[in-house]
Amino acid sequence: MKKVELVRYIEKLSAIKLTSDEEEKFSRYFERVIDYFKVLNEMELGEVEPVFSALPMKNVTREDRAVSRDPEKIVKNAPKSEENYFKVPKTI
């Protein structure tokens, strides 16, 4: 993939609209930082198990119960709402 195509692809995946100036800046940054990340390739990691948390974790469940959270206040935080609903652009 060409550099500019790759940046646009990541933009889409991230759902972030960049200006063309930002695309230019980001692609320079991107190249430099990815290059720096490549230091990890020096390591022999074949047999090493990855960890996704520093301490061993197990799934914890709790009783599912409703808590009252004042829906009016929650909806009031939304940029657009109607009654007690979030309002978004038409999707279909």
Binding site: L40, M43, L45, V48, E49, F52
Partner: peptide
């Protein structure tokens, strides 16, 4: 790779 390095 980063998560493996994290183990080390």
């Amino acid at each position: 790779k980063a998560q493996k390095a994290r183990t080390l």
